[in-house]
Amino acid sequence: MAEKNVSIFDIFGPIMIGPSSSHTAGIARIAYLARKIFPYPVDRARVSFYGSLAWTYRGHGSDKAAVAGLLGIMPEDERLNHSFEIAAESGFTYEIVPVYELPERYHVNTVIIELENAERRIVLRGASIGGGSILIQEINGFEVDLSGELSALLVSHHDEVGVIAIVSHILAANRINIAGTSSHRKEKGDEALLVVEVDSPVGKSIVQQIESLPPIYSVVYIPGLSN
């Protein structure tokens, strides 16, 4: 994660729907990000609450917050309280599952979000780490470390020489400053995931330019959440 000045609005913020910055606002943020990372129609959604969340999600409205985020409702939007009704009206179906056993490597406030349609599927693990701040820690088996504060590119590619160099070259040519990168793979020569956090917005044409390169399978651009 890129080192960041503490802003006045980190202290006097975020604007949120209560009651808990970690169990409500943070969960809404993770779900909102999940939907940005999976910008496709969703036929099936499952939200699993681990640890502290499994025990207290209803009292904290974590379930409403998660559904709101999946519907693209921001943590500060009062529609969050009505997300179940909005989901019902729009035919969005979901499942909420409390998991009381917390795996050792999971953060104490962990949520796993699974989204799928006929062609695609994503499994994402997020942690709500306090004050509304969050970390996406796993995407489809890749261990990542994404705060969502900064805008980011998720570049899924074949694990081969030079991918990071090409991507950073394209961003540099478009005067986009890279705040941080991290590279993740399961096995050498297999599919890999490059996460690039950036300081300014990345336009569609740049995303397409990167996506058109042979070793690259897909690129997802996630606008930063910081408010």
């Binding site: 729907i17 209560g18 009651p19 606002a25």
Partner: peptide, 18 residues
């Protein structure tokens, strides 16, 4: 109380102390 009841607040510095 508004925070505890799911109302709109500003975490300052946290929701519980807003």
């Amino acid at each position: 109380e508004v925070n505890a009841c799911g109302g709109r607040v500003i975490s300052f510095p946290t929701a519980g102390s807003c």
